[in-house]
C-alpha cells in the first residue's frame, strides 16, 4: 500500500520585509510579500527523500491560510509534491495556535495519512508548537525536531538534538514528525518541476467541509487575545569607533564603565 505523506506548510510574510500588525492586531499580510516559510522547505525536502526511498508513496502538501497561500503550495508542488490541499475560509482570520491545530488535524484526517511532516517552527509566529499539538489531536506518536529522519518497515526513526542530549527516537506509523534546518538543504524547483506543478491538483476546503463551526476558530473563537502591539523603540544610536590600534582597549574601557569588568 502506498505511503501517504502529508506535509504541513505555512505561508508567511517575508522575514526580510518590514513586518507589521494590522489594526485588529493580527499579522498584516498585505504589507509584505508572502512566501513558503523557509523552514517548511526542509519538511518538503525530507518528505521527498522519504518518498524516494519508499516503494510507493504519495505526498500531499497542506496549508491553512488566505488565498495567496496557494503560492506556498505551488512552490512545494514544484519541488516535487504530488498534490495539495488548501483550507481557506474568511472565518479563519486571526486563528491562534489551538485553532490552527484543530483545523490542520481535521484536514489531515480528511486527506488520510501515514506520516505527517512539519517544519520546526514557522518564521512568523515562531512558536514551534503545532507538530506537538497535531500529535496530541491525532492521537499518534510525536517524533519531533529531527535533524535526521528515516522511514522503514512501518517505523519512523530519527535523531533529536536537544539542549542537554542527543536522542535517537523510534515510533510506529502513523506518526507526526518535524524536521529542523539541520536535516539537509532543500532542493530548488527545476523548470520541469515548475511546469508540472501547474497541472497538479489543489483541493480547496472550507470549514464546513471539515465539520468545524465558525465560532470555534478565527479571532472570535481564539483561546488567546493580543491586547496591544507596540513597535520597539529604536535602540539609541551607540558609539562607533574605528580601530587605529587601540580599539580593543577602547572597548574594554566601555565595558568597565558599564561595570561588566
Amino acid at each position: 500500500m502506498s505511503l501517504r505523506i502529508v506535509v504541513a506548510v505555512k505561508y508567511v510574510p517575508d522575514a526580510t520585509g518590514d513586518r507589521h500588525f494590522a489594526e485588529d492586531l493580527t499579522t498584516d499580510r498585505d504589507a509584505v510579500d508572502g512566501l513558503l516559510s523557509e523552514l517548511d522547505e526542509y519538511a518538503v525536502e525530507q518528505a521527498l527523500q522519504i518518498a524516494e526511498e519508499a516503494d510507493d508513496a504519495e505526498i500531499t502538501v497542506l496549508t491553512v491560510g488566505p488565498e495567496d497561500a496557494k503560492d506556498a503550495l505551488r512552490k512545494a508542488l514544484s519541488m516535487g509534491a504530488d498534490q495539495a490541499v488548501h483550507v481557506e475560509d474568511d472565518a479563519l482570520h486571526g486563528t491562534d495556535a489551538l485553532g490552527t491545530s484543530l483545523v490542520l488535524a481535521k484536514a489531515i484526517e480528511h486527506t488520510g495519512y501515514d506520516l505527517v511532516v512539519c517544519g520546526m517552527a514557522s518564521t512568523d509566529g515562531t512558536m514551534g508548537v503545532l507538530p506537538a499539538m497535531l500529535a496530541e489531536r491525532l492521537g499518534v506518536p510525536q517524533v519531533t525536531l529531527l535533524s535526521e529522519v528515516k522511514v522503514e518497515d512501518g517505523k519512523v526513526t530519527g535523531r533529536r538534538d536537544g539542549d542537554a542530549a542527543s536522542e535517537q527516537l523510534e515510533a510506529q506509523l502513523p506518526a507526526v514528525v518535524s524536521v529542523t534546518d539541520q536535516s539537509g538543504e532543500a532542493r530548488y524547483p527545476s523548470f520541469k518541476g515548475i511546469m508540472a506543478a501547474k497541472k497538479k491538483k489543489v483541493e480547496s476546503l472550507d470549514l464546513s467541509d471539515l465539520g468545524i463551526e465558525e465560532d470555534e476558530v478565527g479571532l472570535a473563537g481564539a483561546w488567546t487575545k493580543v491586547d496591544s502591539a507596540a513597535e520597539r523603540p529604536a535602540r539609541t544610536a551607540g558609539t562607533i569607533v574605528t580601530d587605529e590600534g587601540e580599539g580593543g582597549k577602547q572597548l574594554a574601557a566601555f565595558l568597565a564603565e558599564q561595570k561588566f569588568i
Partner: peptide, 17 residues
C-alpha cells in the same frame, strides 16, 4: 514548548509562548 502545547490541547486552554 512541546509539553505546554500538548497540555494546552488537553485542557482546551489557550497558550502563549
Amino acid at each position: 514548548k512541546e509539553i505546554a502545547a500538548r497540555l494546552a490541547v488537553r485542557l482546551g486552554s489557550g497558550i502563549i509562548t
